[in-house]
Amino acid sequence: MIPEEIVRSPSWYESSARNRITGLLDAETFREILGPAERVMSPHLELFDLPPAFDDGVIVGRGQLDGKPVAIIAQEGQFMGGTFAEVSGAKIVGLLRAVTASAGTPDGVSAVLLLLDTGGVRLQEANAGELAVSETVRALLGVRAAGIPVVALVGGRAGAFGGGGIVTACCSHVVISEQGRISVTGPEVIETNKGAEEFDSRDRALVWRITGGRSRVLLGGADSYVKGDVASFRAAAARSRNAAPPFTLETMAAEQDRLEKRLSSYGDCRDTPEIWARAGLADPASVPDIDDDAFLALLSEREIKHDAR
Protein backbone atom coordinates (compact mmCIF):
# COMPACT_ATOMS: atom_id res chain seq x y z
CA MET A 1 0.00 0.00 0.00
CA ILE A 2 2.54 2.56 1.13
CA PRO A 3 4.90 3.53 -1.69
CA GLU A 4 8.33 1.98 -1.32
CA GLU A 5 10.08 5.32 -1.56
CA ILE A 6 8.45 6.44 1.67
CA VAL A 7 10.90 5.61 4.38
CA ARG A 8 9.19 3.57 7.04
CA SER A 9 12.26 2.77 9.06
CA PRO A 10 13.38 5.32 11.67
CA SER A 11 14.04 8.66 10.03
CA TRP A 12 17.23 10.51 10.89
CA TYR A 13 15.43 13.85 10.72
CA GLU A 14 12.81 12.78 13.24
CA SER A 15 14.99 10.77 15.62
CA SER A 16 16.44 12.12 18.84
CA ALA A 17 20.20 12.23 19.20
CA ARG A 18 20.07 9.18 21.47
CA ASN A 19 18.04 7.20 18.98
CA ARG A 20 20.41 8.16 16.17
CA ILE A 21 23.31 6.76 18.21
CA THR A 22 21.39 3.56 18.90
CA GLY A 23 20.66 3.12 15.21
CA LEU A 24 24.15 4.01 14.11
CA LEU A 25 26.23 1.70 16.32
CA ASP A 26 26.28 -2.05 16.67
CA ALA A 27 23.60 -3.17 19.12
CA GLU A 28 24.40 -2.80 22.82
CA THR A 29 27.89 -1.40 22.19
CA PHE A 30 27.36 2.25 23.11
CA ARG A 31 29.08 3.42 26.30
CA GLU A 32 28.14 6.95 27.22
CA ILE A 33 30.63 9.23 28.94
CA LEU A 34 29.29 11.72 31.50
CA GLY A 35 25.78 10.45 30.93
CA PRO A 36 22.61 12.11 32.23
CA ALA A 37 22.88 10.64 35.73
CA GLU A 38 26.18 12.51 36.18
CA ARG A 39 24.18 15.72 35.84
CA VAL A 40 26.93 17.64 34.06
CA MET A 41 24.77 20.59 33.04
CA SER A 42 25.05 24.18 31.93
CA PRO A 43 25.69 26.48 34.89
CA HIS A 44 24.47 29.46 32.86
CA LEU A 45 20.92 28.71 31.75
CA GLU A 46 19.55 29.49 35.18
CA LEU A 47 20.58 33.11 34.70
CA PHE A 48 18.18 33.17 31.76
CA ASP A 49 15.44 31.27 33.58
CA LEU A 50 15.73 28.38 31.13
CA PRO A 51 15.45 24.69 32.00
CA PRO A 52 18.74 22.78 31.63
CA ALA A 53 19.22 19.30 30.16
CA PHE A 54 21.00 16.49 31.97
CA ASP A 55 23.44 16.09 29.08
CA ASP A 56 23.46 19.77 27.99
CA GLY A 57 22.31 18.61 24.57
CA VAL A 58 25.46 16.66 23.67
CA ILE A 59 25.95 12.93 24.05
CA VAL A 60 29.49 11.59 23.82
CA GLY A 61 30.91 8.12 24.18
CA ARG A 62 32.27 5.17 22.32
CA GLY A 63 30.96 2.03 20.74
CA GLN A 64 31.42 -0.15 17.72
CA LEU A 65 30.48 0.13 14.10
CA ASP A 66 30.71 -3.14 12.20
CA GLY A 67 32.81 -4.52 15.04
CA LYS A 68 35.40 -1.73 15.01
CA PRO A 69 35.66 0.78 17.85
CA VAL A 70 34.50 4.34 17.15
CA ALA A 71 34.09 7.48 19.19
CA ILE A 72 30.77 9.21 18.79
CA ILE A 73 29.42 12.70 19.43
CA ALA A 74 25.76 13.60 18.92
CA GLN A 75 24.13 17.00 19.27
CA GLU A 76 20.46 17.11 20.26
CA GLY A 77 19.02 19.75 17.95
CA GLN A 78 15.78 19.98 19.86
CA PHE A 79 17.45 21.24 23.06
CA MET A 80 18.53 24.88 22.71
CA GLY A 81 19.03 24.28 18.98
CA GLY A 82 21.85 21.80 19.57
CA THR A 83 24.13 24.69 20.36
CA PHE A 84 27.80 24.86 21.25
CA ALA A 85 28.09 26.09 24.83
CA GLU A 86 30.48 25.77 27.77
CA VAL A 87 29.53 22.25 28.87
CA SER A 88 28.23 20.84 25.60
CA GLY A 89 31.38 22.13 23.88
CA ALA A 90 33.74 20.84 26.56
CA LYS A 91 32.27 17.35 26.19
CA ILE A 92 33.03 17.44 22.47
CA VAL A 93 36.51 18.88 22.95
CA GLY A 94 37.35 16.45 25.77
CA LEU A 95 36.35 13.47 23.67
CA LEU A 96 38.29 14.63 20.62
CA ARG A 97 41.42 15.23 22.70
CA ALA A 98 41.08 11.78 24.26
CA VAL A 99 40.79 10.21 20.82
CA THR A 100 44.02 11.90 19.73
CA ALA A 101 45.79 10.85 22.91
CA SER A 102 44.67 7.25 22.48
CA ALA A 103 45.71 6.98 18.84
CA GLY A 104 47.88 3.92 18.37
CA THR A 105 47.12 2.55 21.84
CA PRO A 106 44.73 -0.33 22.61
CA ASP A 107 42.11 2.28 23.53
CA GLY A 108 42.32 3.87 20.09
CA VAL A 109 39.36 4.13 17.75
CA SER A 110 38.98 3.67 14.00
CA ALA A 111 37.00 6.87 13.49
CA VAL A 112 35.06 9.66 15.14
CA LEU A 113 31.41 10.02 14.15
CA LEU A 114 30.18 13.58 14.62
CA LEU A 115 26.38 13.85 14.45
CA LEU A 116 25.81 17.56 13.90
CA ASP A 117 22.42 19.08 14.60
CA THR A 118 23.10 22.65 15.55
CA GLY A 119 22.20 26.27 15.05
CA GLY A 120 25.75 27.19 16.06
CA VAL A 121 26.79 29.02 19.20
CA ARG A 122 24.39 29.19 22.17
CA LEU A 123 23.90 32.93 22.48
CA GLN A 124 23.18 32.79 26.21
CA GLU A 125 26.75 31.50 26.51
CA ALA A 126 28.06 33.21 23.40
CA ASN A 127 31.69 33.58 24.44
CA ALA A 128 32.01 30.08 25.87
CA GLY A 129 30.20 28.70 22.80
CA GLU A 130 32.42 30.57 20.36
CA LEU A 131 35.52 29.30 22.11
CA ALA A 132 34.07 25.81 22.19
CA VAL A 133 33.73 25.93 18.41
CA SER A 134 37.30 27.13 18.05
CA GLU A 135 38.57 24.46 20.45
CA THR A 136 36.52 21.84 18.63
CA VAL A 137 38.11 22.86 15.32
CA ARG A 138 41.58 22.58 16.78
CA ALA A 139 40.92 19.29 18.61
CA LEU A 140 39.20 17.82 15.56
CA LEU A 141 42.13 18.68 13.31
CA GLY A 142 44.39 17.11 15.94
CA VAL A 143 42.42 13.87 15.57
CA ARG A 144 42.77 14.02 11.81
CA ALA A 145 46.47 14.80 12.08
CA ALA A 146 46.79 11.65 14.21
CA GLY A 147 45.46 9.70 11.23
CA ILE A 148 41.94 9.12 12.49
CA PRO A 149 39.10 10.15 10.21
CA VAL A 150 36.27 12.33 11.53
CA VAL A 151 32.98 11.73 9.73
CA ALA A 152 30.27 14.42 9.91
CA LEU A 153 26.66 13.29 9.64
CA VAL A 154 24.18 16.05 8.81
CA GLY A 155 20.45 15.55 8.46
CA GLY A 156 18.76 16.86 11.60
CA ARG A 157 16.14 19.54 12.09
CA ALA A 158 18.62 22.19 13.13
CA GLY A 159 21.06 21.48 10.27
CA ALA A 160 24.68 22.57 10.73
CA PHE A 161 24.69 26.34 10.99
CA GLY A 162 27.03 29.01 12.30
CA GLY A 163 30.10 27.48 13.88
CA GLY A 164 28.51 24.10 13.18
CA GLY A 165 28.91 24.78 9.45
CA ILE A 166 32.59 25.53 9.95
CA VAL A 167 33.14 22.43 12.10
CA THR A 168 31.40 20.30 9.45
CA ALA A 169 33.79 21.45 6.75
CA CYS A 170 36.75 20.65 9.02
CA CYS A 171 35.78 16.96 9.08
CA SER A 172 37.39 14.37 6.82
CA HIS A 173 34.11 13.36 5.21
CA VAL A 174 30.59 14.82 5.22
CA VAL A 175 27.50 12.62 4.93
CA ILE A 176 24.23 14.44 4.25
CA SER A 177 20.60 13.74 3.42
CA GLU A 178 18.09 15.79 1.47
CA GLN A 179 16.86 17.51 4.62
CA GLY A 180 20.36 18.32 5.82
CA ARG A 181 21.45 21.93 5.63
CA ILE A 182 24.90 23.43 5.99
CA SER A 183 25.55 27.13 6.20
CA VAL A 184 27.26 29.77 8.28
CA THR A 185 24.80 32.65 8.57
CA GLY A 186 21.23 31.36 8.65
CA PRO A 187 18.67 32.66 6.17
CA GLU A 188 16.70 34.44 8.90
CA VAL A 189 19.76 36.33 10.06
CA ILE A 190 20.67 37.34 6.50
CA GLU A 191 17.09 38.47 5.94
CA THR A 192 17.11 40.48 9.19
CA ASN A 193 20.39 42.17 8.30
CA LYS A 194 20.10 42.54 4.55
CA GLY A 195 16.39 42.32 3.76
CA ALA A 196 14.10 39.79 2.15
CA GLU A 197 15.34 40.80 -1.32
CA GLU A 198 18.74 39.38 -0.39
CA PHE A 199 17.39 36.20 1.17
CA ASP A 200 13.70 35.46 1.69
CA SER A 201 13.89 32.98 4.56
CA ARG A 202 10.26 32.00 4.16
CA ASP A 203 10.92 30.74 0.65
CA ARG A 204 11.94 27.34 1.87
CA ALA A 205 12.62 25.91 -1.57
CA LEU A 206 15.18 28.71 -1.94
CA VAL A 207 16.62 27.99 1.51
CA TRP A 208 17.17 24.38 0.49
CA ARG A 209 18.54 25.30 -2.94
CA ILE A 210 21.15 27.43 -1.20
CA THR A 211 21.96 25.34 1.90
CA GLY A 212 20.34 21.91 1.43
CA GLY A 213 21.81 18.45 1.10
CA ARG A 214 21.50 18.12 -2.66
CA SER A 215 23.07 21.50 -3.36
CA ARG A 216 25.90 20.81 -0.96
CA VAL A 217 26.79 17.43 -2.40
CA LEU A 218 26.59 18.68 -6.00
CA LEU A 219 28.94 21.53 -5.19
CA GLY A 220 31.39 19.37 -3.25
CA GLY A 221 30.42 20.73 0.17
CA ALA A 222 29.37 17.25 1.24
CA ASP A 223 30.78 13.91 0.14
CA SER A 224 28.12 11.25 0.60
CA TYR A 225 24.45 11.73 -0.08
CA VAL A 226 22.11 9.30 1.67
CA LYS A 227 18.41 8.65 1.95
CA GLY A 228 16.91 9.99 5.12
CA ASP A 229 16.74 6.81 7.18
CA VAL A 230 19.08 5.98 10.04
CA ALA A 231 20.24 2.76 8.35
CA SER A 232 21.49 4.68 5.32
CA PHE A 233 23.49 7.02 7.55
CA ARG A 234 24.98 3.99 9.28
CA ALA A 235 26.03 2.40 6.00
CA ALA A 236 27.58 5.66 4.78
CA ALA A 237 29.44 6.19 8.05
CA ALA A 238 30.92 2.70 7.86
CA ARG A 239 31.95 3.18 4.22
CA SER A 240 33.42 6.62 4.50
CA ARG A 241 35.77 6.04 7.42
CA ASN A 242 37.96 4.00 5.07
CA ALA A 243 38.13 6.61 2.36
CA ALA A 244 38.84 9.84 4.21
CA PRO A 245 41.59 12.24 3.13
CA PRO A 246 44.46 12.81 5.59
CA PHE A 247 44.96 16.25 7.12
CA THR A 248 48.15 17.28 5.33
CA LEU A 249 49.65 20.17 3.43
CA GLU A 250 48.91 18.34 0.18
CA THR A 251 45.25 17.99 1.09
CA MET A 252 45.04 21.67 2.00
CA ALA A 253 46.76 22.72 -1.22
CA ALA A 254 44.26 20.58 -3.10
CA GLU A 255 41.39 22.17 -1.18
CA GLN A 256 42.80 25.62 -1.96
CA ASP A 257 42.72 24.71 -5.61
CA ARG A 258 39.23 23.21 -5.38
CA LEU A 259 37.77 26.26 -3.63
CA GLU A 260 39.54 28.75 -5.92
CA LYS A 261 38.13 26.95 -8.93
CA ARG A 262 34.66 27.06 -7.44
CA LEU A 263 34.89 30.82 -7.02
CA SER A 264 36.11 31.42 -10.52
CA SER A 265 33.61 29.02 -12.07
CA TYR A 266 30.48 29.99 -10.19
CA GLY A 267 31.24 33.19 -8.32
CA ASP A 268 28.81 35.21 -10.41
CA CYS A 269 25.84 32.82 -10.01
CA ARG A 270 22.80 33.86 -7.99
CA ASP A 271 21.12 30.51 -7.48
CA THR A 272 22.17 26.89 -7.61
CA PRO A 273 20.31 25.89 -10.80
CA GLU A 274 22.58 28.40 -12.59
CA ILE A 275 25.55 26.53 -11.16
CA TRP A 276 24.15 23.18 -12.17
CA ALA A 277 23.37 24.38 -15.68
CA ARG A 278 26.92 25.66 -16.02
CA ALA A 279 28.20 22.34 -14.67
CA GLY A 280 26.35 20.62 -17.50
CA LEU A 281 23.40 19.05 -15.70
CA ALA A 282 20.73 18.17 -18.24
CA ASP A 283 17.70 19.43 -16.29
CA PRO A 284 18.90 21.68 -13.48
CA ALA A 285 15.44 22.91 -12.49
CA SER A 286 14.32 19.39 -11.68
CA VAL A 287 17.15 18.60 -9.26
CA PRO A 288 15.26 19.47 -6.05
CA ASP A 289 12.17 17.52 -7.07
CA ILE A 290 13.40 14.19 -8.41
CA ASP A 291 13.26 11.35 -5.92
CA ASP A 292 16.26 10.11 -3.96
CA ASP A 293 16.92 7.16 -6.26
CA ALA A 294 17.01 9.39 -9.31
CA PHE A 295 19.25 11.87 -7.52
CA LEU A 296 21.63 9.13 -6.42
CA ALA A 297 21.77 7.89 -10.00
CA LEU A 298 22.58 11.39 -11.18
CA LEU A 299 25.37 11.64 -8.62
CA SER A 300 26.93 8.34 -9.59
CA GLU A 301 26.92 9.41 -13.25
CA ARG A 302 28.78 12.59 -12.46
CA GLU A 303 31.39 11.27 -10.04
CA ILE A 304 32.00 14.50 -8.17
CA LYS A 305 34.19 12.88 -5.55
CA HIS A 306 37.17 14.83 -4.36
CA ASP A 307 39.88 14.23 -1.79
CA ALA A 308 40.43 17.86 -0.98
CA ARG A 309 38.96 18.44 2.47
Partner: peptide, 18 residues
Amino acid sequence: RQAIVGVVASGNLEILLE
Protein backbone atom coordinates in the same frame (compact mmCIF):
# COMPACT_ATOMS: atom_id res chain seq x y z
CA ARG B 1 19.15 1.14 37.40
CA GLN B 2 18.52 4.26 35.40
CA ALA B 3 16.89 5.47 32.22
CA ILE B 4 16.25 8.72 30.42
CA VAL B 5 13.31 9.61 28.19
CA GLY B 6 12.30 12.74 26.32
CA VAL B 7 14.08 15.91 25.31
CA VAL B 8 13.91 19.42 26.75
CA ALA B 9 12.33 20.83 23.60
CA SER B 10 9.50 23.33 23.55
CA GLY B 11 6.34 21.63 24.84
CA ASN B 12 8.38 18.63 25.87
CA LEU B 13 10.37 17.38 28.85
CA GLU B 14 13.08 14.97 29.84
CA ILE B 15 12.80 12.55 32.72
CA LEU B 16 15.75 10.85 34.36
CA LEU B 17 14.66 7.76 36.28
CA GLU B 18 16.91 6.33 38.98
